[in-house]
Design a protein around this nucleic acid. Structure first.
Lengths: 213, 213, 213, 213
DNA sequence: CATGAATGAGGTTTCATTCAT
DNA sequence: TATGAATGAAACCTCATTCAT
């Protein structure tokens, strides 16, 4: 299933190390100039390699996009689930929003990159990417529905609220220069969380209680 | 101020017509394959022209991006203002959201395109684009603040709510394949409007009254 | 023998008039930008014609070079000969130098042009041009030899002196910006004539006599 | 100050070698067909390279013109000065003419090329070229004035004589096909030197003495 | 006779990829 | 394993020339 990428090296450790470097530099350059306008020469130089050396570890320029995808597939949903252990659903949602928005902040470069360059990805990789976005939404949808079934939330369209949550996280990364002139990340999280809670909480006082901690 | 684009034709009518065709086809191709991967040959062919003919109406490939920008600069804020005549602010906001989301639906291709290809625009054109996004947000912010000063709305951060409104409109266009599997445009507008109103209205009953019409 | 140039017009008068205009504008533009860098579009515009109209009077861009050659073939040697009637050879040479240098001044643009663009001419036209330069030299050579046979001049290599005379005339046109900062045309003619006479005259006092007039 | 030309190679020796080849072939082709009519494809082929390889060593076609200029900037005036040590000015002038005319013969291709293609050079490079021509003239002017101040020469316009000397050197190169049918280089130098000396020497016998050696 | 839109070959330049060293 | 020179297809763009109107 995972597409295999050509290498002339038999030293697995070295391949991993070099690819990791390539991916890191590629993301930087692709963000700055776009995929098409970044040349292999530039990329190799920024990796401290020669072009020939680079091609020992990748099969083609397009392969780098695939490596970038692999590199970013963050199993952050697992992190979420840990947060869901014993605490109540209301707090769980708040925590998840916080974790997710924090991840959006950290992974902003990646997300800007995918948003723009998705067109250059293979069909399979494109699908993987869209799937992962859908997963985030579905995760929040489930959480909201859980709250609804527990009588804590009331909401007409859980998936729309989930969608809004996820997109507003993305927005923090994609439009950071605009948003940062008004909010810090913490403030942004706090305000958006309050808005979400205002929409779905049956008993808004709950919100106030915990946000005082 | 407005950058002028080279043409060898003196027939203004023809130039307009041809450029309009070029822009239309270009948007289609750029969406499909991206700016860099769309060749002039393809574009010319898809316009039913030869390359030489195309260059009678533009000076360079980059000029097409500028033409695309001009083509989209919709004075839709003026349309909004007409809606603000005598009616109360609550209804005005609802109407504006509706007009704006409808525009987002119509201009989806353009917005997807800009979102992705903004990196290829000239600095001046990039600024123009960002400015216009900021204008939308500011417009909604003002409207919300008006409602606040009239005692109809109550809201912690008007600009954040305005930002959310504008971005959720964009989202309808940018992520239409996902959203359309759950909502029609009308349904999406209705639900998002209810959410916004739920957040800012002091007396939620107002919402119910009018949405029954 | 004279190459015929295609025209779609049957009105000889008109053809002549238009070609004369074309040649005039072409020389101006070719001098400024060179033959290759001057486009038919520019030329047509500078003639107040359209490209299509221009091609009614010429068959190709290269034809213009040929027309330019025809236009410049000045039968100035005939003018010289008139000056040779009854006066003595010494004065005849002086007069011829003066006439020739004056022509070099008037035809400077042409000469600069040929010097530079000769490479673009057809082989036949190139030969014509070189032949005409050789004719000038031969003319002065004959004159000098006449003076030698009459006992007025003494000179080792008449053709070399003739060559120098002709080239120094050209130089006035080709390097005018340099020379004009030191001499007027009259001064240049006077000084070069004195030098020539100093070289070939047996009895230099003759020179003084006439130059006093 | 010296314009640097792009190369993708870091091997200075190789760059030098390849550029030297390019310049050599370019001069040959440019002489034959002119700058504009010589294609990069032809040039590359005549260098035994592909187009891509050629562009490792130059940044653009125009750069070749600059390289040609650099290649020719001959510090020949220094050579002259060595000849001026202890010998008297009369002999020095004769030697300088000889050295200069010999250089004109060697550098004929270059000079033909510059004469014709100067229009394609950058403004800076054009100035450099004109300056170097002026330097030659000035050099001879100084030498003549030195002779005048020593009482060896008598001349109305030293700069005009200097100009004639320099131009007649150029002429040997520019019009070699004509001149060579009458003179060898040695003969040409000898005759032109005699003419110059005839013009400026106060005591012509000096000339005879040394030319007998 | 004039217009000017269209053609399309051919120009310069770039760059992903290979391969001899 | 690394180097970096070379390849050559393909990109954008120009412009002499034609031809329907």
């Amino acid at each position: 299933m995972p597409k295999s990428i050509r290498t002339y090296s038999t030293n697995g450790e070295l391949v991993k190390e070099r690819r990791s470097l390539i991916v890191k530099q590629a993301l930087k350059l692709f963000l700055q100039k776009g995929y098409d306008r970044t040349t292999i020469r530039e990329l190799a130089k920024s990796c401290g390699m020669t072009e020939g050396a680079l091609y020992r570890y990748i099969g083609s320029k397009d392969d780098i996009l695939h490596l970038l995808l692999l590199d970013t597939t963050v199993a952050f949903i697992e992190d979420f689930l840990k947060g869901l252990g014993e605490i109540n659903t209301v707090d769980a949602l708040k925590d998840c929003i916080k974790i997710y928005y924090t991840w959006c902040n950290d992974a902003a470069d990646n997300n800007i990159f995918y948003n723009r360059e998705i067109i250059n990805f293979s069909v399979a990789d494109r699908r993987t990417r869209l799937k992962s976005q859908a997963d985030y939404i579905q995760f929040f949808e489930k959480l909201i529905k859980k709250g609804v079934s527990e009588g804590a939330f009331k909401v007409k369209s859980p998936i729309l609220v989930a969608h809004n949550i996820v997109m507003q996280g993305f927005d923090w990364g994609l439009r950071r220069w605009f948003l940062r002139s008004f909010f810090t990340l913490d403030k942004y999280i706090k305000l958006q969380t309050e808005i979400v809670m205002g929409i779905i909480l049956i008993n808004p006082s709950t919100k106030q209680l915990r946000s005082n901690k």
